[in-house]
């Protein structure tokens, strides 16, 4: 199992870079992943809005929300979400938010 090291914290990730234990997630980790995985130098307020929404939803329901819900509840339209996270909602946004990798073809 690969680990990533930033500062003095060690976090276990899978080979796709998804954080293994959602409890290890911090905002610093999200910033770090944004740079490493998405090539984003800084996260805007809108990025954070999506990330926090995803985390809250996951904590409540134990699963990542549909893109439909994400758009509705954040008020962002679909294309804007794709722009915010170039790797897409699953491999981009969910990964930054520390959610596990979804099943299926992603």
């Amino acid at each position: 199992m690969p680990t990533i090291q930033f500062g003095d914290v060690q976090v276990e990730v899978d080979e796709d870079g998804f954080v293994q234990d959602p409890k290890q997630w911090t905002e610093d980790l999200a910033r770090y992943l944004a740079k490493q995985e998405e090539g984003l130098d800084n996260l805007t307020e809108d990025h954070w809005k999506v990330i926090h929404y995803l985390r809250d939803y996951y904590q409540q329901f134990g699963i990542a929300p549909m893109i439909r819900k994400l758009c509705k509840d954040t008020g962002f339209d679909l294309k804007y979400i794709y722009e915010l996270f170039p790797s897409g909602p699953a491999k981009g946004a969910c990964k930054l938010a520390g959610l596990p990798k979804p099943t299926g073809c992603v």
């Binding site: 990542a64 549909m66 893109i67 439909r68 679909l78 897409g88 909602p89 699953a90 979804p102 299926g104 073809c105 992603v106």
Partner: peptide, 10 residues
Amino acid sequence: NPREVKYFPL
């Protein structure tokens, strides 16, 4: 494919 419904509905 469920990924269409969940993430890529276009």
